[in-house]
Nucleic acid binder design. Structure first.
Lengths: 181, 181
DNA sequence: ACCTGAACACCGTTCAAGT
DNA sequence: ACCTGAACACCGTTCAAGT
């Protein structure tokens, strides 16, 4: 239980835990340092900056995506990705915020490309899942704050209908291989 | 040229201009106040908080979406929405960040629903456009910083291929009205 | 190898008071 | 109606120095 001696992995683990407890806006370097019982400057021995820390957190989140077994369909893979993003609070936003910088970690796209022929379509589907899940998690937070949302509607029911509509569009592609339109 | 006397509209206009010049991470209340030659606290007479200011900015961005004329197809409407988001730096991220809170301003979904039958599919397509455009603008910024991106590839060429792949998936829906699958 | 201490240049927001 | 002045409670990051 000595206060000190952390490494990249243990810092990332606590960052992920803190993210889930307080959300992305309150995940600060200073607060993370306090939980590690360490000065804020100590974090910069492990990570060059906050972006790099968030990239490590994003990779952890994406590591929960199941590898598709033979015979899996588009809906199953897409749902697996969405659920991985939903596992931690604000998970989708963290992944989005580091998407451009993350080297490697193409686990999601690879999984989708295994069930969708075209690479561009697989990327497009991943971008839909990211966008959709980000908005779902935002709405979760807005609701917990008690803020007025756009909707005079049921809170979660039709969100899933939107997800299914998106999946249906891309699933059609994998069946109807388009005849050079 | 007196320093004072602003209103909600003029503040929003300068905020949009500042966003385009410095990007979302550097769009702070203090910096905006400085450009208006006013104390930071003055902004809180016009807006309850930063979120509300960003929501007003988001509405301005979305107001550039063209109303679909009869005979417009899905590709045209979707491209119009993307281009509206691309007009200002980090436009897509601003819209996403206030999506859950924005009352009204369903202009984008309405435009899409006019060319896609199903409301859930129209929302899904909008979420794809938002996710995709956010990532495109992020990559623009990463590149201008000179940061290492994921790609050993052409910078913009295949981004558009992903956009077209997404559109194609949803466009197929509007033609092949699915026979109660 | 990993951390402290101190500093720099910032944030969003509140609130009494001014005109 | 619109703004100032001052304060509160925060940020990310750097860097010399310690062990």
């Amino acid at each position: 239980m000595a206060p000190g001696r952390h490494d990249r992995d243990s810092v990332t683990t606590l960052a992920l835990d803190l993210l889930d407890r307080v959300g992305l806006p309150d995940l600060s370097m200073r607060r993370l340092a306090a939980e590690l019982e360490v000065q804020p400057s100590a974090l910069y021995w492990h990570f060059a900056n906050k972006q790099e820390l968030l990239a490590a957190v994003a990779d952890r989140i994406l590591s929960r995506i199941p590898q598709p077994e033979p015979g899996t369909d588009v809906t199953e893979v897409a749902t697996g990705i969405r659920d991985a993003l939903l596992t931690y609070r604000d998970g989708a936003e963290v992944v989005m915020s580091t998407y451009a910088l993350r080297l490697g970690a193409r686990r999601a796209q690879d999984a989708l490309q295994a069930v969708i022929g075209d690479a561009a379509s697989a990327d497009a589907l991943f971008e839909f899942i990211l966008g959709h899940t980000t908005l779902v998690q935002q709405r979760m937070h807005a609701q917990s704050i008690g803020a007025a949302t756009d909707a005079a509607d049921d809170p979660a029911a039709d969100l899933d209908a939107v997800f299914r509509a998106g999946i249906r569009a891309f699933a059609a592609l994998s069946v109807v291989q388009d005849p050079r339109s």
